[in-house]
Amino acid sequence: MTVQLTDNRRVIYRRPDALQDKSTHYCPGCGHGIVHRLVAELFDEMKLTGRTIGVGSVGCSVFAYEYFKTDFVESPHGRAPAVATGVRRVQPDKFVFTYQGDGDLAAIGTAEIVHAAARGENITAIFVNNGIYGMTGGQMAPTTLLGQKTTSSPLGRDPVLAGYPVPITEMLALVPGTAYAARGSVATPQLVGRAKSLLKRAFELQEAKAGFTIVEILSNCPVGWGMTAPASMEHVEKDVIGTYPLGVLVDRAKAGPESK
């Protein structure tokens, strides 16, 4: 962040330039806004905005194109990794990212994300996991926790009826084409800082054309979960992280090419 003087006060934090100057449609306390901000901060710091083509998805983040000062293409539900593949292959010098939720990436879009990873596409998937279909009214997602009540699992997710939470990022970490897979969260101020460093590593590896990169961010859905925003973040910290442990799942660039 550039240090500058305004009315004699020295700015140490301000809204990133890569964000459009508008209010978002997200509900109060929704983690999407935090993740958008982290991505925009990195666009500023790494000077990526002018070279970036974003690939949208379907779900609460469908309007992401409204908020970033980058070119953007919309995708059908789940298909963002395929769309991003098409963009990146014909524009090999651009920075290309998808921004997808857990319904989009881990249910309807599993084939597209797995094969984008398998091909080692030089794209970054920003995967915001809040364990619910927020946009359509809080239905059960593939990532919904066992026992979690949603509008389509009213008695709580029962594995006999509805299976188990999908650890999609662990699955993607197994694929040799995946250069980097990590899971962070925006549940606390410390974790927000850590999430940014995970995103930064992924962006750097895309710039180095290292292969497919994905950062999963555990986030919240205060409205869908029926909680206040602070309580929802506490729930992520206390309960969700237990099912989805945080950390770097694979960093093949660091491990060296032999591990590929």
């Binding site: 690939v55 293409v73 995708s75 059908p76 298909r79 395929a82 769309v83 991003a84 593949t85 098409g86 963009v87 990146r88 292959r89 014909v90 597209e112």
Partner: peptide
């Protein structure tokens, strides 16, 4: 969908 991305 790759076509969509490339053609866009």
């Amino acid at each position: 969908n790759m076509a969509l991305g490339a053609a866009a």
